[in-house]
Deep mutational scan, measured.
Amino acid sequence: MSGNGNAAATAEENSPKMRVIRVGTRKSQLARIQTDSVVATLKASYPGLQFEIIAMSTTGDKILDTALSKIGEKSLFTKELEHALEKNEVDLVVHSLKDLPTVLPPGFTIGAICKRENPHDAVVFHPKFVGKTLETLPEKSVVGTSSLRRAAQLQRKFPHLEFRSIRGNLNTRLRKLDEQQEFSAIILATAGLQRMGWHNRVGQILHPEECMYAVGQGALGVEVRAKDQDILDLVGVLHDPETLLRCIAERAFLRHLEGGCSVPVAVHTAMKDGQLYLTGGVWSLDGSDSIQETMQATIHVPAQHEDGPEDDPQLVGITARNIPRGPQLAAQNLGISLANLLLSKGAKNILDVARQLNDAH
Rank of each mutant, 00 (worst) to 15 (best):
T25F: 05
I33H: 07
I33D: 11
A44T: 12
S45C: 15
I53Q: 08
I53A: 06
T58F: 01
T59F: 15
K62Q: 15
L64E: 01
T66P: 12
A67M: 01
L68N: 06
L68F: 06
L68E: 07
S69R: 11
K74T: 07
K74W: 01
S75C: 15
S75P: 12
K79I: 09
K79M: 09
K79T: 09
E80N: 06
H83G: 10
N88D: 07
E89N: 13
D91Q: 06
H95G: 04
S96T: 01
L97K: 04
L97C: 07
T102V: 05
V103A: 07
V103C: 15
P105Q: 11
P106A: 12
I110F: 05
G111M: 01
G111C: 01
C114K: 07
A122S: 10
V124G: 05
H126C: 13
K128L: 11
F129D: 08
V130G: 07
K132A: 10
T133S: 10
T136K: 13
V143N: 03
T145I: 04
R149W: 03
A151L: 11
A151E: 01
A152V: 13
L154T: 08
K157P: 08
K157Y: 12
K157M: 12
I166A: 08
L170K: 03
R175F: 03
D178R: 03
Q180G: 10
I187E: 03
L188C: 11
T190Q: 15
A191Y: 04
Q194Y: 05
R195V: 04
W198K: 11
N200G: 09
L206P: 05
E209P: 15
E210P: 01
G218E: 04
L220S: 06
L220H: 03
V222I: 15
E223T: 07
E223F: 01
D228K: 03
Q229M: 12
I231D: 12
L232Y: 05
D233Y: 07
D233C: 11
L238Q: 07
L244C: 12
A249H: 01
L254K: 01
H256G: 15
E258D: 15
A266Q: 01
V267N: 15
K272Y: 01
Y277K: 04
T279M: 05
V282K: 04
W283T: 05
S290N: 09
I291M: 13
Q292C: 12
A297R: 01
A297Y: 04
T298C: 08
T298M: 09
I299C: 15
V301L: 01
P302M: 13
A303F: 15
Q304W: 06
Q304R: 13
G308F: 01
Q314V: 11
V316K: 01
V316R: 12
P324C: 04
L334Q: 01
A339T: 13
L341F: 07
S344H: 15
G346D: 03
I350E: 01
D352W: 09
Q356T: 03
L357C: 01
